[in-house]
Amino acid sequence: MKGLFKSKPRTPADVVRQMRDLLIYVDLNWNSQEAKREEKMAELNKNIREMKSILYGNSEAEPLSEACAQLTQEFFKGNTLRLLIVCLPKLNLEARKDATQVVANLQRQQVHSRLIASDYLEANKDLLDLLVSGYENMDIALHYGAMLRECIRHQSIARYVLESENMRKFFNSIQLPNFDIASDASATFKELLTRHKSTVAEFLSKNYDWFFKEFNSKLLESPNYITRRQAVKLLGDTLLDRSNSAVMVRYVSSKDNLMILMNLLRETSKNIQIEAFHVFKLFVANQNKPQEIVSILVTNRNKLLRLLSDFKTDKEDEQFEADKAQVIKEIAAL
């Protein structure tokens, strides 16, 4: 008898549908009566949270794959992701965080062994432009940034962002004065340039000229310490990746690049010096050094040898010492 009056439990699809309706309401009636809006907002927050606990589980239960699949399917069937992203600035902090976690999780959900999030994003690439532009708005930057990083787990989506105009925006976002946002942007930038090897290699060879011009002048020669430090580390990681060897050879054959790296070697910051060394050694190790590189190295031979002989890492690092010995040998033999 008791069961008769209990409302039927909502299915995961119901939760998504209700959330979508509420989002539409909130989007259209933003200027409606305060009390009414508050009520709808509270309901919306509850729905988003419920989605989160279906996807992540809660203290009592682990997530069920069947429920996750249902939810994911319904979510991408409608235009829910777009609505959620567009309405995010209207949500309160807690709901924004929940929504971000929901979106992050959905990128990894498979339905019939397909990542349908990827298909959806491919058909709605403008959403990625919207997410990247989030770095211009302090209030939502960290939420959009976190969503964006999850979206570029899909190779095709990462390729889109790399090859779009958005890529140029990162050079500015990375240097925003607000540390939270700048470091989030640089985490995304790094992810774009390291995650999908073949795509990155293709991007770098196609866009070599403008990309490294920006990279050198805006990042490696930035007045901002942390920008330089992160950039030179990223440069090392990128060039040392085997899939980028063609780009590396091109980079280390340029006199201008060498000069920038040699300036970084002289920095007072130990961290920057060491990261710069890992790139500098590539110039020296190059077996087909152009004449202008050789002549710079020869001209500065004594100074370089002196610098290198005093050069030590804080912790003992055999690889570093071996590299250093090799570099010293090469320079001395020129």
């Binding site: 939270d180 992160q230 912790k315």
Partner: peptide, 20 residues
């Protein structure tokens, strides 16, 4: 940030946690 213990990723995580 120059001291060895200050790993940049940790610092970023702390900043983000505190901001959100």
């Amino acid at each position: 940030l120059e001291r060895s213990r200050a790993n940049l990723d940790d610092v970023r995580r702390e900043a983000k946690a505190m901001a959100l």
